[in-house]
Simulated assay, not measured.
Amino acid sequence: MWQGVIPAVTTKFKQDGGLDHAEMERCFAYQMDAGCHGLVACGSLGEGNMLSHEERLEVLKLCKQATADKPALLTISEPGTREACELAKRAAGAGADGIMIVPSPIYHTSRSETIANLRTITQAADLPVMIYSNRVGYRVDVTPDMMEELADDPRFVAIKESSDDIRRTTEIFNRLGDRYAVFTGVDNLAYEALTAGAVGWIAGLVVAFPKETVAIYELIRRQRYEEALAIYRWFRPLLDLDVSTFLVQQIKLAEVIEIGSNDRVRMPRQPLSGEHRKNVEHTIKVAVESRPSLPQF
């Protein structure tokens, strides 16, 4: 159902802290013009938990405006199931093509609680669902056996696999075949996951480097592995910026340098400063100066 490169977009803010609609329109259009296959709003990179429900729905609508007939998904990441169901219903009403569910960002649910939470939110939205499995970031692991139990509901269509263990991708296929569309959610495991059978990439650094991200995906899809690997090896220092407590600030700084955006964030986050900022700027600028020519595909 879903496949390809789907950016987890950043949320843009004005100097007064409000949403910067114009800048998001520009940045989202830039992703789609580069050949991306959809957008995910208000995830971890999109600072979703720092936004009100109304703000999240505004970002979703901007995503849908940019994607047109391609999917625009809203991330549902609420402490309580009741609040998650409310937002999921509103997402459906606002035109979301689907939702991506974080099982529980605060309370670390048990197996039965995780399954019940996912089912209840899905019932409320009545939309296609991508399950966000991220045991590193959220300490709730949606395992292949849980995916198998949930497989009786056809609304569960995809997995964002972010366990940080590349073996998990093969384990899902071995257990469930192609029941789910498996997406990699870890930037610096993307080549490995895509060559292991993942059909898509929920990407982070794509917001600054969409053409390179799409090229890797498209070349792998055409089995042009050596060409894809050459780009991936160049990209790898940048992709490492996604795997950090500071991924939001680091990736927004990449947007500043590469596409002339801004790196404003919602408190308690603050933009990078000092040596940390200098080091990240150096990594980005070295990559920009040595970027490879992209092959035709």
Results as ranks from 00 to 15, higher is better:
residue 88 A to W: 01
residue 109 T to C: 11
residue 38 G to W: 01
residue 197 G to H: 10
residue 89 K to I: 12
residue 135 R to I: 13
residue 35 G to H: 09
residue 95 G to W: 05
residue 208 A to E: 08
residue 239 L to H: 05
residue 44 S to N: 14
residue 70 K to G: 03
residue 167 R to G: 13
residue 131 I to Y: 04
residue 183 F to K: 05
residue 120 T to K: 15
residue 41 A to P: 00
residue 124 A to C: 10
residue 75 T to M: 10
residue 241 L to I: 14
residue 288 V to D: 07
residue 228 A to Y: 03
residue 164 D to R: 14
residue 271 P to Q: 01
residue 61 K to F: 03
residue 201 W to I: 06
residue 128 P to R: 10
residue 227 E to I: 04
residue 30 Y to R: 14
residue 133 S to C: 09
residue 97 D to G: 02
residue 271 P to I: 07
residue 125 A to M: 04
residue 183 F to P: 14
residue 209 F to M: 09
residue 42 C to R: 05
residue 4 G to C: 09
residue 161 E to V: 00
residue 103 P to A: 11
residue 153 D to S: 12
residue 210 P to N: 11
residue 263 D to V: 03
residue 114 T to G: 03
residue 238 L to F: 05
residue 162 S to W: 02
residue 157 V to Y: 00
residue 240 D to F: 04
residue 81 T to V: 15
residue 206 V to H: 08
residue 201 W to Q: 06
residue 17 G to P: 00
residue 127 L to N: 07
residue 229 L to W: 15
residue 6 I to Q: 02
residue 73 L to W: 06
residue 73 L to S: 02
residue 202 I to F: 14
residue 187 D to A: 11
residue 198 A to G: 02
residue 91 A to V: 08
residue 4 G to P: 13
residue 206 V to M: 09
residue 294 L to P: 03
residue 82 R to S: 14
residue 241 L to C: 10
residue 184 T to D: 11
residue 45 L to H: 09
residue 256 V to Y: 03
residue 139 R to G: 04
residue 37 H to G: 00
residue 254 A to W: 00
residue 52 S to C: 00
residue 225 Y to H: 14
residue 223 Q to Y: 10
residue 239 L to D: 12
residue 28 F to A: 02
residue 119 R to G: 03
residue 263 D to I: 01
residue 73 L to F: 13
residue 285 K to G: 00
residue 268 P to V: 10
residue 96 A to E: 05
residue 284 I to V: 12
residue 233 R to G: 04
residue 38 G to L: 07
residue 43 G to D: 05
residue 52 S to P: 01
residue 15 Q to L: 14
residue 142 V to Y: 01
residue 287 A to R: 07
residue 94 A to V: 11
residue 20 D to E: 11
residue 276 H to D: 13
residue 205 L to Q: 12
residue 143 T to S: 11
residue 130 M to G: 06
residue 79 P to W: 02
residue 124 A to T: 12
residue 279 N to H: 13
residue 218 E to Y: 02
residue 108 H to D: 00
residue 272 L to G: 08
residue 32 M to Y: 08
residue 232 Y to S: 13
residue 86 E to H: 08
residue 219 L to Y: 05
residue 272 L to Q: 04
residue 194 L to R: 11
residue 50 M to W: 03
residue 6 I to K: 01
residue 280 V to K: 01
residue 142 V to L: 06
residue 284 I to D: 08
residue 275 E to Q: 14
residue 206 V to C: 15
residue 199 V to D: 08
residue 273 S to P: 02
residue 74 L to P: 00
residue 243 V to L: 10
residue 271 P to H: 01
residue 278 K to S: 10
residue 234 W to Q: 12
residue 126 D to C: 11
residue 194 L to C: 11
residue 221 R to P: 00
residue 279 N to G: 07
residue 88 A to H: 01
residue 202 I to M: 14
residue 182 V to E: 12
residue 154 P to M: 06
residue 136 V to N: 13
residue 244 S to W: 09
residue 98 G to S: 09
residue 218 E to T: 12
residue 57 L to D: 02
residue 234 W to E: 11
residue 105 P to E: 07
residue 94 A to R: 05
residue 125 A to I: 05
residue 196 A to D: 13
residue 251 I to T: 12
residue 175 R to Y: 07
residue 118 L to S: 06
residue 92 A to R: 15
residue 1 M to Q: 06
residue 61 K to N: 07
residue 211 K to L: 13
residue 252 K to N: 04
residue 148 E to V: 04
residue 236 R to F: 15
residue 97 D to P: 00
residue 106 I to T: 11
residue 64 K to W: 02
residue 281 E to G: 00
residue 292 P to E: 11
